[in-house]
Design a binder for these strands. Structure first.
Lengths: 348, 348
DNA sequence: CAGTCGACTGCAAAGGTTTGCAGCCGAAGA
DNA sequence: TCTTCGGCTGCAAACCTTTGCAGTCGACTG
């Protein structure tokens, strides 16, 4: 029932190849012919069959986007941005969710491999070596992780964590806790590294709690532990955990920021709506999504037709750019000066 | 580079058709041959090219899922459920986001039409007639809306709204506001209808505020108006608005539930984490996602090959089931007895 | 022993599109 | 007038898989 290129050709009295060219290389066909063909196509409601096109061009015009948990508000802006950018270039995005499971992650990328032109691996939980392995099967751009030899787009959470710690130091805090993220997270490692260094540099003591589930529940569950540890400030792996922690602290009678200062990471929409408004490290999620799509498509157009699957495997491709996006500390209401009465801060 | 069916055939010394059957109809090939072929396939890393398969079978094994706003926490559970159910049947899900824009919605379904076997239209904002029109182009299952002649899966928000109003009536409230949802939303209309009837039945006065943007911001913006209107209880279009409203009320000095009771709809994860915990109408989102996928696949397997695009158009298909899923009122902490001092309730 | 049947496998067409190559035609240059 | 060239179009192969049909072969039935 759906009109094919042949129907259009018949209707407009030209050969199918002319119809094909009308769409894929308009400059090659006579303007008059072109308008006639277009009119017929419009008339018959013709839309090129992407499967057939994919078969011959080797390009599906689809890209896969694998995220850890679509329900985490961190991801939707990234997904939207990626989708928008892709649509703009006549690509579609498959979004898939791994439920934070490294195994599901691997299965998914295999399943996707044959029906997309490339995969965006966002905040992967699997090992670097596994990532390298799958990248031999399908072009991959990694988001939120650094993998040698592969194109990556990262957000500078190290710098963000440093800024957060320095902000807290400036408020007089000297006993700080870091709520670690999930196991296998590159971001978690980076934050830890940077926060540790910054704390040491400022003469503060950093307690690391984790790894944890990066959710409200995960944050809330740590309230008791934070309270007991005697810290006056907390840097959480993400906003969700920070918000959960604030709720949890509130429930056991600790006030934020009066008793404890809390800093999150991500600057999700919600962080502007809770009370107190959350001080947080804003990550350029949308930009990351757009950049990743661009890099993938770039990669893809570089690769000679038929050479898909080789891709950047051997690292000989000099297009394996790695970009680091800047983060920014946004100071709101969940951080304040270290509580005065306690004899906790050593250096004043 | 990627191995084709021909490579496998050559390697295992059989004809390509035998290889094909090894995968798509294993019972038709000799067990010995089968293991040999499978071994070779495994060895070469062969994976069937879905585009080629799609070309001949007419089935892409993809389904599209169009949602209004992926950042609204209502959708992710539905998306996850749909994805899971689809994966289970060897289908993949395209998720696309319309930003609450009816026009983007239409474009999207057209763009998707040719590369999926069907589309799940979730909480559509476009008109019924437009939906019917696109359903002639590609099989469609509608979620959260009733369209005559098309398969639909709905959640009984009418019953939920009634239960919510009755709950409020039971607490003594007689002046109630309904925070309406976005224009074009079937759910919003249903709620309004049911809430109006229930309020009238209980001798209460129902003020309708809206339409509104179904977000926290949208809810927060209504705080003043709610305060001024003198109502003692509010039923919001969804949890996000309810939460925004509570924040907004709090900011202007009205306490929930002491001064105003608030009920949401959806029971998103967040509603359990705010304080006060939100009383809300739980909607079976995950079930809706699963059901919709099942219905679509069912529809799809009924349609004779090559007849795609006709589908349930003329309403002659008796498989156009419409299912209504039950909702349930979950009473938490955001609702309480009507404030005693005020002389507001007319009937006591 | 002839005939039948069933299990298995090969053959070839078909599906819709892209694209290198070749052909046509008219215009410009010699 | 004869070439040459460029703009445009047609031809046909190719992409990879599925599937109806037909063929082979051995075993079983009568």
């Amino acid at each position: 029932m759906p009109a094919t290129i042949r129907d259009v050709a018949r209707a407009s009295g030209v050969h199918i190849s002319t119809v094909s060219r009308t769409f894929s290389a308009p400059h090659l066909v006579n303007p008059e012919t072109r308008v006639r063909v277009l009119a017929c196509a419009e008339d018959l409601g013709y839309r090129p069959n992407r499967a057939a096109r994919a078969l011959i061009t080797g390009r599906t015009h689809n890209i896969g986007l694998i995220v850890a948990d679509i329900a985490n508000p961190f991801f939707p802006p990234l997904i939207k941005a990626a989708e928008g950018q892709a649509r703009h270039r006549d690509y579609h995005v498959f979004v898939a969710d791994t439920n934070e499971d490294p195994v599901a992650e691997e299965d998914l990328v295999h399943a996707l491999a044959k029906q997309v032109d490339g995969v965006l691996l966002c905040s992967p939980r699997m090992s670097n070596s596994l990532i390298e392995q799958v990248s031999r099967e399908v072009p991959v751009v990694v988001i939120n992780r650094q993998v040698a030899g592969l194109p990556c787009v990262m957000m500078d959470v190290g710098q963000g964590a440093r800024a957060a710690i320095e902000h807290l130091l400036g408020l007089g805090h000297r006993r700080i806790a870091l709520l670690g993220g999930p196991r296998g997270s590159w971001t978690a490692r980076e934050m830890r590294r940077a926060a540790t260094a910054a704390a040491r540099g400022g003469g503060a003591e950093l307690t690391i709690l984790g790894p944890n589930q990066p959710t409200e529940t995960g944050g809330g569950a740590l309230a008791e532990q934070v309270r007991r540890s005697g810290v006056t400030a907390v840097l959480a792996y993400n906003d969700l955990m920070a918000i959960g922690l604030i709720e949890g602290l509130d429930a056991i009678g600790a006030r934020v920021p009066h008793d404890v200062s809390v800093v999150g990471v991500d600057d999700i929409a919600l962080s502007r709506l809770t009370r107190p408004k959350l001080t947080t490290v804003a990550t350029p999620t949308a930009a990351a999504g757009r950049t990743a799509v661009d890099m993938l498509l770039q990669l893809d157009s570089d690769a000679p037709r038929g050479a898909r699957g080789r891709g950047a495997a051997a690292g000989d491709r000099r297009t394996t750019a790695q970009v680091m996006l800047q983060t920014e500390l946004v100071v709101r209401d969940s951080t304040g000066p270290v509580p005065a009465p306690g004899r906790d801060g050593t250096v004043a």
